[in-house]
Simulated scan of single mutants.
Amino acid sequence: MRSITSAFLALALLIGSALPGFAVNPDEVLDDPALEERARGLSAKLRCLVCQNQSIDDSDADLARDLRVLVRERLVAGDSDDQVISYLVDRYGEFVLLKPRFGSHTLVLWLGGPLVLLAAVGVVALTMRRRHLHAAAGSATGANLSAEDQKRLDALLKDGE
């Protein structure tokens, strides 16, 4: 029974440590649940400029905290979600967005991956086609052996058995 309890405790700790830790401090949370939900949604879309691969919602960095507070201040002031995002992009550039906007300047980001994937599929298809053609050509060449070469091939095949 004791081993089951310790195994359960270990599993609970493992699962608990795998869950994302949110860095929003209790003093940042807004009293209005609707505004707080909007703030959390916006914070999840914004990049921590220090951590770079985390949202400001997940980051413990001081700058991320400042950005979370700024988002909440803008929402309390009556800004829409788009206005808050525009304000932050104007102030920090598009790098602040975890998911960059689609535009001519981000075309490579959005289309680069699919184009590389299509090119890879094309290369694999061409390689397989060439192998298939070479195999077919090899079997056709084998049918056109001279009588002397055919005898030598038959002899080699008999020795191999």
Rank of each mutant, 00 (worst) to 15 (best):
V29Y: 06
L70D: 14
L46R: 02
L126F: 07
A125H: 11
G142L: 12
G78C: 07
A18F: 08
G78M: 06
P20G: 01
L126K: 12
A10E: 10
S80M: 07
P26I: 08
V29M: 07
N144W: 07
A7P: 00
E37V: 03
A61H: 12
S43F: 00
A155H: 06
G122Q: 04
D154H: 11
V89F: 02
E36F: 04
I4E: 10
G122S: 08
A137W: 05
G142R: 12
T5I: 15
A77T: 06
V124W: 05
Q52H: 02
I56P: 01
H105V: 06
A23W: 01
P33I: 11
Q54L: 08
A140K: 09
G138L: 07
D27V: 13
G16W: 01
D62F: 00
Q54F: 05
R65P: 02
L153T: 01
L98F: 01
L153Y: 14
D82P: 07
T127A: 09
V50Q: 15
A125M: 03
G78I: 02
M1Q: 09
L70I: 14
L107H: 05
R72Q: 04
V50A: 14
S80N: 11
R131N: 01
L19G: 00
T5S: 12
L133I: 10
L98Q: 06
K158P: 00
Q150H: 09
R47S: 15
V121F: 05
K158G: 08
V116N: 08
L67E: 01
T106Q: 02
D58S: 14
G113Y: 05
R152N: 11
A64K: 01
H134I: 04
N25E: 10
G142A: 14
A12G: 06
L19A: 05
V108P: 06
V108L: 12
D154P: 00
D149R: 14
S6Y: 15
A18N: 05
K99T: 15
L126D: 09
K99V: 13
A135E: 05
L63F: 07
F8S: 11
R47E: 10
S146V: 10
R129V: 03
R101D: 10
V50C: 08
A64L: 02
L156F: 13
Q54M: 10
L19N: 01
A34E: 15
E73N: 15
L107R: 11
L117D: 11
A39P: 03
G103Q: 05
R129E: 08
F95L: 00
D32M: 03
G41N: 15
G160F: 15
E37C: 05
D62T: 12
R38N: 04
L145Y: 09
L115Q: 12
E28L: 06
E161Q: 13
L157T: 13
T141N: 12
L133A: 05
A34L: 13
R38P: 00
A10G: 07
Y92W: 14
D58H: 14
K45V: 07
S55K: 01
L97R: 10
C51M: 10
A7F: 13
L118M: 13
D66A: 13
R2Y: 12
Q150Y: 11
R129A: 12
V123H: 06
A137V: 02
L98P: 05
L109K: 03
K99H: 11
G122P: 00
K99F: 06
F22H: 06
D58N: 09
D32L: 04
L63H: 05
R74S: 15
N53I: 02
G93C: 05
L49P: 03
D149G: 05
R152D: 12
L13Y: 07
L9P: 00
Q54I: 03
E94W: 01
